[in-house]
Amino acid sequence: MRRPVLLLAVVVALAAAAAIGWLLLRPAPESPVVAEAARTVTEEVAQTIEERRDFMKGLGEQLAVARAYVQEGVGNSGDVAEAARAIAERAERITGLFPEGTGMHEVEVETGARPAIWEDPDDFAAKAEALQEAALAFAGLADGDPGREAVGGGMATFGQEGCGACHRVYREDIN
């Protein structure tokens, strides 16, 4: 009884060793990343990408106003409301900053724009609209001067709904 069990164990061990050896020696499995087509970049495309990166940084500058108030008590709740309205006003420019052919696999310039943007443009536009709504809601909260902690909470909600909802799907984490 004991011998067949031992034999079986040896066979299983040999099979496992062979399988590991084969896996180690074969070429690496294909990564699920879409095979990158030839990347091209024209002056115009480079400009568009620079423009949208500056645009996003501009939104960040408005958020810096909000954070300075929340974390350091610099300025007041009215400044935060103003910054949030500035973001809301700019949100409608977003879809125009992502023309076709400017995705991360298509250009040599660094960009985190995922191909999904152009696979579902309606959803992408809806996310830009959600940014506007979230910014206006945040501005409305700050208008009421509810205190730093509450404004901080509103800023976090704005981040999740305004920024995160879109970045989750459409933005590669490039830096």
Binding site: M56, K57, L59, G60, E61, L63, A64, R67, Q71, G112, M155, A156, G159, Q160, C163, G164, H167, R168, R171, E172, D173, I174, N175
Partner: peptide, 28 residues
């Protein structure tokens, strides 16, 4: 710590990809 709470980086970029889920479901 602030990034894990809100998703905002020090230069006011915002988390992308799967980290957005991690922040929403976990670290926040």
């Amino acid at each position: 710590a602030y990034y894990l709470e809100t998703g905002f980086t020090p230069d006011f970029d915002f988390a992308g990809g799967a980290m957005t889920d991690v922040i929403e479901h976990s670290t926040s």
